[in-house]
Design a protein around this nucleic acid. Structure first.
Ligand SMILES: [Zn+2]
Ligand SMILES: [Zn+2]
Ligand SMILES: [Zn+2]
Ligand SMILES: [Zn+2]
Lengths: 132, 132
DNA sequence: CAATTGATGTAATAACATAACATTTGCAAT
DNA sequence: ATTGCAAATGTTATGTTATTACATCAATTG
């Protein structure tokens, strides 16, 4: 899928995420956009819904937050499952793909006749700087 | 770690999860235990905290719910990373372990000097029955 | 223009989770 | 048995995340 032209609200939300050091909650995004006219959570959630659909933003389920894709222009969706390492101290997020992991997981679910739609892999821990 | 004798509240919460067909939210558990004297969310969350610590219950991050471990008596924690396939239609959960997946993920984070603490792998989709 | 579609605005509410503080219970040391 | 401590519990209030419902606006199209 190619990313269509973003609307005003979608651009605002995306810009906030791109400029952020790490993942942000929807309400944190809302606060950062109050000066631009945002008043309600739904304005953020609706924009995020589209950005997730376009694959330019990822949702981190384990911390209820959102992050801009680390592979701009590449169309992340096409790389298979995306995995994240999330530093619980500084919030830094590393994003990566591993086809062997994809393969093993998909082989297992196929054996169960399970039809996968969306897979989450999130590793929480400490980044190099924070672990020191 | 061996599982200590459960307290009254821990037992009640665990029994509800064991008898359930699928994962339950903390508030659903609360409702099921009102007849047994539960009045507040914290009574559920505190019991869950211990049950998670003992490894007899798992938290499904992507659906804010909890499920009894599918491997009773085995001490799930010792099997490495636990992965789940969650049917979005009927709620059924399958739990499995794959050492190769563990190995690949841990190798990657080690290469980044990232120190992993807790890993989530959750595959949402449709089970065999629901996909038909 | 009328109809349709997608985006937006706003208020209210639902769902999930924790903070703060008081009380009770079980158990060990004196 | 009493004292002291740690773990568990009870209770109220609050904080955080997400959705429902409904109204309006803008662009497209027949
Ligand atoms: Zn990405
Ligand atoms: Zn860090
Ligand atoms: Zn388990
Ligand atoms: Zn199903």
């Amino acid at each position: 899928m190619t990313t269509p032209q973003l609307t005003k609200n979608q651009s605002l939300v995306f810009d906030v995420l791109e400029k952020a050091e790490g993942p942000l909650s929807a309400y944190t995004i809302l606060d950062k956009l109050r000066d631009h006219g945002f008043r309600a959570p739904l304005q953020v959630y609706r924009a995020l819904e589209k950005l997730l659909e376009y694959g330019v933003v990822h949702r981190l389920e384990s911390i209820n937050s959102f992050v801009a894709c680390a592979h701009p222009g590449e169309n992340c969706h096409s790389h298979g499952i995306v995995a994240f390492a999330i530093c619980e101290s500084c919030g830094q997020v590393m994003e990566f793909h591993d086809h062997e992991v994809d393969h093993r997981l998909m082989a297992w679910v196929r054996g169960q006749k399970f039809k996968p739609e969306k897979t989450t892999i999130e590793i929480r821990g400490l980044c190099e700087a924070c672990a020191a």
